[in-house]
């Protein structure tokens, strides 16, 4: 199978869905030539009526998209940075998420909000966040978080066809990664987890960029310590395929949760609690979480003190297994960080 870049996969999904359905349009700041290289050829092919470059007006971008969605269109918003959603938080949390419910189910809001997430680029506290826990605690939103080019394309196509608001969390540090993507038409359904690595000793719940880091960490755990990890990537956080997570935990008896968002009240807390409620008796050790520390994300080299690091992931796996030895990953698994 051919291999393409993650951002090229997103671009293909946009081209295909905009060709397939003329109700789909793309809107955002600089979206005609977006920062992450996902818009190539769209403006040339679809013109300014369907590739709407805006002023710096997040509330109007997000709110108008909710309004157009209710009037029969399928807008795709690009926020450039997920962090910027706060300038249109009312439009996302109160309008996109609640409007259908609050009007007795009389309206539908087919909307995709593409929100580039993530750190490891030294960009500091308001250009590095993930925010998935914030969206996940908001009933009415769906949340996709692709880890590979294959998932990026397939999930984006599903998101555009979905009749609900979808927060699409694409990771900035995955944009330049490659992976197999079929040339034939396909979609990735929501609510179906993918086992990114099959294993027997420890279940690792991971999303987005954490899947990539954890795959590298797992290789060293296998080769140097003989530990077999099973990486479960839920791919969507709402709907969430807990069945696959629970089945894996029942098999391995151990769980480590790796998530880039802030630890406190984060995704890890929710996953761990659901495992407690449904598979407590199967656990041989307490669940461990590797997440961002409870601070704003620092810039440049200091972000490494706050964001999850590969060494912490390896340590967590060793600890849940009760191993007293250590896998030293110094110089072996690198994050995208330049320093």
């Amino acid at each position: 199978m051919r291999e393409i870049l993650y951002n090229a996969a997103l671009n293909e999904a946009m081209h295909e869905e905009m060709s397939r359905d003329d109700k789909v349009y793309y809107i955002g700041e600089e979206c005609a030539e977006d920062t992450w290289g996902t818009s190539t050829g769209l403006f040339e092919k679809f013109g300014k009526a369907r590739v709407k470059n805006t002023a710096i007006s997040e509330a109007a971008i997000l709110g108008s998209s909710v309004g157009a969605a209710m009037a029969g269109y399928r807008p795709i918003v690009n926020l450039m940075f997920a962090d910027f959603y706060v300038c249109g938080a009312d439009e996302v949390l109160n309008k996109a998420a609640k409007w259908r419910f609050a009007n007795g189910g009389k309206v539908t809001i087919p909307l995709v909000v593409r929100a580039p997430i993530g750190g490891y680029s030294g960009l500091g506290p308001d250009h590095s966040q993930c925010l998935e826990s914030l969206f996940m605690r908001t009933p009415g939103l769906k949340i996709a978080i692709p880890a590979t080019p294959y998932d990026a394309k397939g999930l984006l196509k599903s998101a555009i066809r979905d009749n609900n608001p979808v927060i699409f969390l694409e990771h900035k540090n995955l944009m330049g990664t490659t992976g197999p993507v079929p040339e034939e038409e396909y979609t990735v359904p929501f609510g179906v987890a993918d086992i990114k690595r099959a294993g027997t000793d420890v279940t690792v719940f991971a999303t987005g960029y954490m899947v990539k880091l954890m795959l590298d960490v797992s290789r060293h755990l296998q080769e140097e310590k003989g530990i077999s990890t099973e990486i479960v990537d839920p791919r969507t956080l709402e709907p969430l395929d807990m069945e696959t997570v629970i089945a894996s935990v029942k098999k391995t008896k151990h769980l480590v949760i790796v998530d880039e968002d802030t630890k406190r009240c984060g995704v890890g807390a929710e996953i761990a609690m659901q495992v407690m409620e449904n598979a407590f008796d199967y656990l041989d050790a307490p669940v461990k979480r590797v997440q961002a520390e409870n601070y704003p994300i620092a810039a440049c080299s200091m972000e490494k003190y706050i964001l999850p690091q590969p060494q912490e992931m390896a340590d967590a796996v060793m600890e849940v297994l009760g191993r007293s030895d250590r896998l030293d990953l110094t110089g072996k698994v690198k994050t995208a960080s330049m320093v």
Partner: peptide
């Protein structure tokens, strides 16, 4: 008619989106 917002001025951006739909 698609309701109104609990937050004052909350529906004006939505109306702008309806106008985008009208234009398209």
């Amino acid at each position: 008619i698609f309701g109104f917002a609990g937050l004052v001025a909350g529906e004006i951006t939505l109306a702008t989106g309806a106008a985008i739909a009208c234009q398209m």
